[in-house]
Nucleic acid binder design. Structure first.
Lengths: 240, 240
DNA sequence: CGCGGGTTTGAATGAGTTCAATCACGGTGG
DNA sequence: CCACCGTGATTGAACTCATTCAAACCCGCG
């Protein structure tokens, strides 16, 4: 719950939202090992999930084995609000690292948001933010060069992690192999590696086994045309 | 309103949803000429729009002039439900052809959906479908070849147009220049043209000034790995 | 007729892929 | 303690798909 609270407290007044209501919702905590599916394509989910710890990702496999990762989901992210309409999922969600999940059954979730318009609005906002991340992903893979893609992704992950941790840092923990970045950015593993070494040699980043350190944020942001406004991390205002 | 009614009647029981409520909502009808912005990046919108006639598109321009079209919006599509949270738009929406719009002010829209949970659920579904289209777009530009992208896009437009027209056809009216397809699919205009002629020479499609005719739907769908389930065009079920 | 937007074609170039080999490192079993 | 794996990162060379630039073409329209 910590990550979600951190996140929400960044855009709503601390005591504006009754987190208690959410925290006390009936739920189960589940653990998934890396590679285990959380939601499988074609299935109708009856639950909403909140990621407590670890990374997950949405993905789809094409007929010949190509894989596209749609987006990464970090602590504090919620899915699948799609379950509210009982639609079949058009993609799978898998644990990228070991993941701790809070599972809330759809009907209790619906009950909670219909009781609290504030909570409903907060989750509406979550959906908005996710859409924005998807759109940014389209732009990344559609019109950006390899270095721009990599730089942009690093900065996005850094902002989102900072947002859910509640603290600034130039370090991006990257608990996933480069192959996953490749499938997220529509590049080959080989080229991801080459791009990293290019960014390293230019002094923009340093890489280690644990993750990436951003050495020159400004230049990197300029190079990759990164503008974090799309993440909508400013305080939320309610529509009258 | 016709297009939206057609569309909704395809997935909800005809008299299940009180379209009257929606139809009688205070609104203004507006016309935009091709190229005119409907929503501008950075602005906070106070209205929800429904496209009555014509095509619009979401897009973003990068610093050096590259453009990415995020998706096309056809008759019956709604936007921007984002306005409910009074967030600044992270992209622009522009008329691709001459467009007829129904503009509903956010506050009347919010009033209507809070009165009618059915209406709210219907619009929630609209948001779900749009997310699915965005995800499919990511897969298209991230992991598909040029011919797959073009074929897949043709089939998507065909399904969506059929859905909003309420009638089957193998013809896809394409009232926009190839340059727009290029910016949507992350390809150059030249390559779009070459790809079309490849698809033509294989006998999959025929092109004319008005649009595209699909000659061999099955083969084309196979070639482009198109599976229309993501469009969620089946009847809606309500979550208890 | 001639102009202009859009499409098509050709030739040269380039960014990213593929294949294959090598390297680095942590873990395992003898 | 050390040889032996296996996974993931890196590098080189050949190749491919798509881009760029430039010219030609097509067609509706004033």
């Amino acid at each position: 719950m910590k990550a979600l609270e951190n996140r929400m407290s960044n855009y709503v007044d601390v005591n504006w939202l009754d987190m208690k209501l959410l925290r006390e919702l009936p739920h189960k905590i589940e653990i998934r090992r890396p590679g285990e599916d959380i939601v499988t394509i074609g299935e109708v989910s009856d639950s909403v999930f909140v990621i407590e710890k670890g990374w997950a990702m949405r993905y789809r496999i094409l007929d010949d084995g190509r894989r596209q990762i749609l987006n990464f989901m970090l602590p504090g992210d919620c899915f699948d609000l799609m379950s509210l309409t009982a639609a079949k999922s058009d993609h799978s969600v898998v644990a990228a690292t070991e993941v701790e999940l809070r599972r809330i059954e759809t009907h209790s979730f619906v009950a909670a948001i219909s009781k609290s318009p504030k909570l409903a609005m907060a989750f509406w906002w979550v959906a908005i933010q996710e859409q924005a991340i998807l759109r940014e992903q389209i732009i990344r893979v559609g019109r950006r060069s390899a270095s721009e893609r990599v730089g942009h992704m690093i900065l996005e992950l850094n902002r989102r992690l900072a947002f859910s941790m509640g603290e600034e840092t130039n370090f991006v923990s990257l608990p996933v192999p480069q192959a996953l970045l490749a499938d997220a950015l529509g590049l080959s593993v080989v080229h991801i590696s080459r791009t990293f070494s290019k960014l390293r040699s230019k002094g923009f980043i340093a890489t280690g086994p644990e993750g990436i350190e951003i050495l020159r944020r400004e230049e990197l942001a300029k190079l990759s045309d990164f503008d974090n406004r799309y993440l909508h991390m400013e305080k939320l205002r309610l529509a009258s």
